[in-house]
Nucleic acid binder design. Structure first.
Lengths: 123, 123
DNA sequence: CTAATATATGAATGATTGCTCAGGTATTTG
DNA sequence: CAAATACCTGAGCAATCATTCATATATTAG
């Protein structure tokens, strides 16, 4: 019984897995859990319309928290929470000028992701 | 009082928005709600480690539902739900051969998104 | 036709997530 | 120094989501 793969559910796909070698190869090529998790959280940061609108706005140049709150029509507190999340994943960075913090996209990857994602969504 | 922007919260950022013209420009360049929503859902489909592992596995070639369930160690039902979501956003496509459905990435955009995202997550 | 296999799907449920509220920190002004 | 402004953050609540369970559909075998 060396071909079998354990499945979790009660409606498991019989006893056999159809392509054992293909599954094994996928296992070898798989990313480690920590990387997978960070990648998932990165995409997750872009999975909300409000946050996405925020990031797209920043792709047009830097903005302060007040500007973003006004633009998104949400409270500065909400914006700040979202910015913290984006910051945590290095999607945006900030620069202080007096009391004002100006946010912008962290690097070109971010604009690239937006472009590619949009190209796919529109096709 | 033509410079003011309404904000939603009670701790609203004073009465004034700092860069009115910048906010106005962002408004002009903004995507329409439906597009934004679809884009958000597209990224959302990639925001779960299990689904991400699934999609990355498919980037190495097509796999059937059974294979994926075995590889991910979740029930075929759970995989099927996830595949439906990915299918709905045209991230994966399927081809039937007898009773077996083989899934693969829908187009190059998808692999591109994974690559770009990974490059960012690893930097 | 009936039985078996592979996959799909609706409903229910526990876990995440977005927002608000109520504070707290950092910077400038007087 | 104290007051004001811009922003941050922890806790709590409502909505969303991933999974399970039960059932339904599609294809092949007999």
């Amino acid at each position: 019984m060396e071909n079998q793969q354990e499945t979790a559910g009660p409606d498991l796909c019989g006893v056999r897995c159809i392509h054992t070698e293909r599954v094994a190869r996928a296992g070898e090529e798989a990313l480690e859990a920590a990387t997978l998790d960070r990648l998932a959280r990165t995409f997750g940061a872009l999975s909300d319309p409000t946050r996405l609108k925020l990031v797209m706005a920043l792709s047009g140049g830097e903005m302060c928290v007040c500007d973003l709150a006004a633009f998104l029509k949400v409270s500065p507190s909400a914006v700040s929470h979202q910015l913290a999340r984006l910051r945590d994943l290095c999607l945006v960075k900030r620069r202080r000028q007096g009391q004002v913090l100006y946010y912008s996209l962290d690097d070109e990857h971010v604009a690239g992701l937006l472009e590619l994602g949009l190209a796919h969504a529109l096709e």
